[in-house]
């Protein structure tokens, strides 16, 4: 485990996580969640949990982002609060 890489990705996870809840555009939030999942996937693979990383990449970063985008497309792009 390279700690510099670990720290960089952890920082990005936090930034993307805060970004996902503060951004007003829901489509942007969906993409942020995708990025978050991808960062988590990198973290899992750094820690050697390749199976979990694979699941995170396919489900979290892939399909669930598509579901979010589809839901935003059928509802509204702006949040109420």
């Amino acid at each position: 485990m390279i700690w510099q890489l670990d720290l960089a990705i952890l920082t990005l996870v936090v930034i993307v996580g805060i970004g996902a809840i503060t951004v007003k555009d829901l489509l942007g939030a969906a993409i942020m969640f995708g990025a978050y999942s991808f960062m988590m996937c990198l973290l899992w693979s750094i820690m050697g949990a390749v199976d979990v990383a694979f699941t995170e990449a396919s489900v979290g970063a892939g399909v669930s982002t598509v579901f979010f985008v589809a839901a935003v497309f059928r509802t509204t792009r702006r949040t109420k609060d």
Binding site: D51, F54, T55, V63, V66
Partner: peptide, 24 residues
């Protein structure tokens, strides 16, 4: 991924998601 889950990372869940993603 489904068939090689015995030897490498992967398995039914990941392979199934990818199959679904191809149709999506």
């Amino acid at each position: 991924v489904i068939a090689h889950g015995h030897h490498s990372p992967g398995g039914g869940f990941q392979g199934g998601v990818m199959l679904g993603a191809s149709v999506i």
